[in-house]
Nucleic acid binder design. Structure first.
Length: 714
DNA sequence: TACTTTGTCCTTTTT
DNA sequence: GGACAAAGTA
């Protein structure tokens, strides 16, 4: 019930109690960002000058939004009404449902997730005879979303060449298709909502007046459209409070624009940028390592984290001979920490890409250590759940062709590709949905949907879902399948989820209430990740660095620190790709409270091939005096230079058979007088002709004649 | 029409 | 190694 302002440090207090003016808060990792944001909201309300309804707080994830809501409400005496805290998409959804007519949408519009969108694009591409070699559905989807996120409609795409012209046509056709079917994809939600407010002066004035205080979390992750959307709420009286950390910007690959921070500073004439640099999370050595690493980035607003807790332990570094070796060591380490009293859920293993989890899982499983992998297949994304949702969507909105195609012949009911094709032709001719033109063979399916509609009308949500799961034949179908038991369990779980579902966003302010089924389907699309199993159990946490953002652990293992993996090889082709990789490493390191492990392996199975990787440059960028090697090997490789501008990683060519020539073995570490240290990645010939291919990192990859080159074993 | 086998492609991810 | 889609077979 209290704000506990006395517990804030001077900078935090300054941020919380800023007068009514625009503000930019540079909040470093672990600096109490969420606390400042939530206390600010509570402080504003308690001041009595405004009500909760005057506040708009925007976050990126549902998790962050929920956390914020909980913390704010705990600081206020009564449950605040009219307080808008949510994700960009959640808030846009709320607005679009409330003003669906003005936005040109049916009230029960359905939301396409990325998968659904891709399916819709594929279907469109086929109906328009697109050469998939020239334009893959992925590319088209990327083009559409990229433009939408810049606020550019199909008609406004600048036509530079034939390709763009064609893509713009497809974009236009795609939007028409969505409109016809009453569906909206993720970027469309933002753009629609943006256009709605932009065009409708009355609405804009209404919301602008209402939201006197606009607070934005993770501002560095906003894209251009999101920023423009936010600016629509700006009035003479309004105050914007943006919190962000440019060093933690790790989503530029999907359109986030860090430049928004500088833009905001300029456009809102920010007088004072408040820097939160005191870190309450990590020990000194860990923090120093993070600071040293990020100092290698040139594009920064500048910030240096410090802590008043001691230096703590050194950062531990391990080199494995192979990924399996690395995993075995890691499991042993986890086991002994666990024995010494650190709970498993307080330890996390982080990696750059999901593919790396497999080896770890294998090792953990065989040693009987419980673990939990984040970011795998989410509940609402499972095939059987998607199928059930498709039936439900058709009940709510039969013109949804995406859903129609998904389940028209699932479970199989004799509607083959031919029948569907004919149906699609008729639909195209009549500019109507598949459902409307279904006849003959497909009439049976149409009848099924219609029966479901009449049968479920007016029933409670859980019963609707139960009936649909049963009568669609899904359950029956999975009974005959070998691994169907899990799927049936999931379908039951879906009914459960429906039973416990209560939606607070249905409390609308403009009269019309959204029907429960649509609300549930919206929840499934927008909050797909919220429904996760095994949340409570004590288990080791496995996740990518990306999904670790915002979290913290006593012990963090950062594994696979190898050139090509982390930094990822693809990042070399992107503008400022390496800097983003470095920020990613920075995020990873700053997750650790007490102990940090960094590890890498000499060989690793990737894409079914063994790769020989050299240690990541990030290991070189951390001052040696902060680290403690658990294996001697790495410390021997003195010839490292910090410059790895050229090719640094290679995989073993497919056809290579020779593993060993003249005493040199593939995978072996070597030192060359001129090129420094490297690793043998291939070998061929024998005797005097024997040659080895060596990856020297900075000096590149070279073929060397064994007889000539003065190679030394490292 | 429906199931089985082969060929291609591999980041990161929330909404 | 593995997911997913297109081609192949009963």
């Amino acid at each position: 019930m209290s704000l506990h302002l006395e517990l804030l440090n001077p900078e935090q207090l300054a941020a919380v109690t800023l007068p009514d003016e625009h503000a930019l808060i540079l909040a470093g990792a672990g600096s109490g960002k969420t606390r400042v944001l939530t206390t600010r909201i509570a402080w504003l309300v308690k001041s009595g000058r405004i009500t909760p309804a005057n506040i708009l707080a925007v976050t990126f994830t549902n998790k962050a939004a929920r956390e914020m809501l909980i913390r704010v409400t705990s600081m206020l005496p009564a449950n605040p009404r009219g307080l808008w805290i949510g994700t960009f998409h959640g808030l846009c959804n709320r607005m679009l449902r409330a003003h669906h007519r003005d936005a040109g949408l049916p009230q029960a519009f359905q939301i396409l997730d990325s998968q659904d969108q891709l399916a819709a694009v594929k279907r469109l591409a086929r109906s328009m005879n697109v050469d998939e070699d020239r334009f893959s559905p992925r590319d088209i989807q990327y083009f559409i979303n990229g433009n939408k996120e810049e606020g550019v409609r199909a008609g406004d795409v600048p036509i530079a060449d034939e390709n763009t012209k064609r893509l713009a046509e497809l974009y236009a056709a795609y939007d028409e298709q969505c409109q016809r079917e009453g569906v909206v994809d993720f970027p469309e939600m933002l753009l629609r909502s943006y256009e709605l407010l932009k065009r409708n002066e009355i609405l804009r004035a209404h919301y602008g007046q209402r939201f006197r205080h606009v607070l934005i979390d993770e501002f560095q992750d906003t894209n251009r459209l999101q920023y423009r959307w936010l600016k629509l709420f700006r009035t003479k009286e309004s105050c914007f409070f943006a919190v962000g950390d440019d060093d933690q910007s790790i989503y530029t690959f999907r359109g986030a624009n860090v430049g928004n921070m500088a833009e905001f500073e300029r456009e809102f004439a920010i007088k004072r940028v408040v820097r939160l640099e005191q870190n309450y999370r990590s020990h000194g050595n860990i923090l120093d390592a993070a600071n040293a690493l990020i100092a290698n980035n040139r594009n920064r607003l500048g910030k240096n984290l410090w802590t008043s807790t001691g230096a703590g332990e050194l950062v531990r570094v391990f080199e494995g001979e192979s990924d399996m070796d690395e995993a075995r060591w890691l499991v042993e380490e986890v086991r002994s920490l666990s024995r010494d009293g650190t709970s498993l859920s307080n330890m996390a293993v982080l990696y750059r890409s999901n593919a790396q989890s497999r080896v770890l899982e294998h090792a953990l499983f065989s040693q009987g250590i419980s673990y939990r992998v984040y970011g795998g297949l989410r509940f609402f994304e499972r095939a059987e759940i998607k199928h059930a949702l498709a039936y439900l969507r058709l009940v709510a909105q039969p013109d949804d062709d995406n859903s129609f195609l998904r389940v028209a012949n699932f479970p199989p009911r004799g509607l083959g590709a031919r029948t569907i094709e004919q149906l699609q032709d008729t639909a195209k001719k009549n500019q109507a949905s598949l459902f409307k033109v279904a006849e003959g063979k497909s009439a049976v399916f149409k009848k099924l949907i219609e029966d479901l509609q009449t049968e479920t009308r007016g029933l409670p949500l859980a019963e609707i879902v139960g009936i649909v799961v049963e009568k669609s034949g899904l359950k029956e179908h999975y009974k005959t399948e070998r691994e169907g038991a899990d799927r049936i369990e999931n379908l039951d779980e879906l009914v459960n989820a429906a039973a416990t579902f209560n939606d607070d966003s249905r409390e609308v302010e403009s009269g019309e209430e959204v029907d429960p089924l649509t609300a549930f389907l919206t929840h499934a699309a927008l909050e797909a990740g919220e429904h996760q199993a095994g949340e409570g159990a004590d288990a080791l946490q496995l996740m990518t660095v990306h999904s670790a953002k915002g979290l913290e652990f006593d012990v963090v293992f950062l594994s696979g620190l190898e050139e090509g993996l982390f930094p990822h090889e693809q990042s070399a082709n992107e503008r400022d790709g390496l800097e983003e990789e470095r920020r990613l490493a920075y995020v990873a390191i700053t997750r650790a409270r007490n102990r940090l492990y960094l590890s890498h392996a000499q060989t690793r199975m990737l894409h079914g091939q063994t790769r020989y990787n050299i240690p990541s440059r990030f290991l070189e960028e951390i001052p040696q005096n902060l680290m403690k090697w658990l294996t001697p090997r790495f410390s021997k490789q003195k010839a490292f230079t910090p410059d790895f501008s050229r090719q640094t990683v290679s995989s073993l060519p497919k056809k290579s058979q020779a593993r060993e020539v003249g005493g040199w073995r593939v995978g072996q570490n070597v030192v060359h007088p001129k090129f420094g240290s490297g690793v043998i990645i291939d070998a061929e010939g024998h005797g005097n002709d024997a040659r080895v291919q060596v990856n020297f990192g900075a000096a590149g990859v070279k073929w060397l004649a064994v007889a000539m080159a003065k190679l030394q074993a490292a």
